[in-house]
Amino acid sequence: MSVRVTEAPAPVVGAGQPLLSVRGVKTYYGNIIALKGVDLDVNQGEIVTLIGANGAGKSTLMMTIFGSPRAREGRITFAGTDITQLPTHEIARLRISQSPEGRRVFPRMTVYENLQMGAAINDFAHFDEDVERMFALFPRLKERIGQRGGTLSGGEQQMLAIARALMARPKLLLLDEPSLGLAPLIVKQIFDAIRELNRKEGLTVFLVEQNAYHALKLAHRGYVMVNGVITMSGGGRELLADPQVRAAYLEGGHH
């Protein structure tokens, strides 16, 4: 984990199709349109980030991929399967895992039980092995194993939410603002863990972030969303250097 990536390695693009593809997706809350036709791809083995201001529709896109709320127009495919109309739990069964906005760990259940809930999807195959993997990734969780989710600190809850999502052995991990409300040191720990997962296990990650600096440094590619539309896309470093992105999301912000 101490190895810092200076140059993002070229993503391993799957032959032909992207792993997750979002095409012309429009999502409404009642009559209010939140996503105004979004196109976005996540390729096998990539870390892709979506940055944008509050209320841009980032989390809505994340939730739409998971089928709640449902896209009113457009098409979302995952590994060649159309998941636009699938119920949430069936989408999860295709091995998309999510660390949702606000973490949503089960507050009265222990860390161990939370991890069990994550593994329910694959009937606890490799459960013990996977728990050990999570301990290696987030040693803090091992110390807290018998503690209730609600008593953990924000950073520990975030680690637990990610670990719980990983217990399902996902093909695609969706992360919604993992850095929200966390100390910079913890943010770095969590982002290092994501980078390690991607490099060692080839895990595909789709990351929604407000913390544009860290997210773009971590990602192979990035998208910028403004008011429910993708306005820019490109390589992580490329976007980081872009004057418009710098002006809107980085200048005066925290580094």
Binding site: S68, E90, A92, S97, V105, F106, P107, R108, A120, I121
Partner: peptide
């Protein structure tokens, strides 16, 4: 058993439950 744990998880957080692949 998994069904009992699913009940408790449902009580705690229905949305998290669904996104973990549990048929609520």
């Amino acid at each position: 058993l998994p069904v009992g744990r699913a009940w408790e998880a449902l009580r705690e957080d229905e949305i998290a439950c669904r996104s973990l692949g549990i048929n609520t």
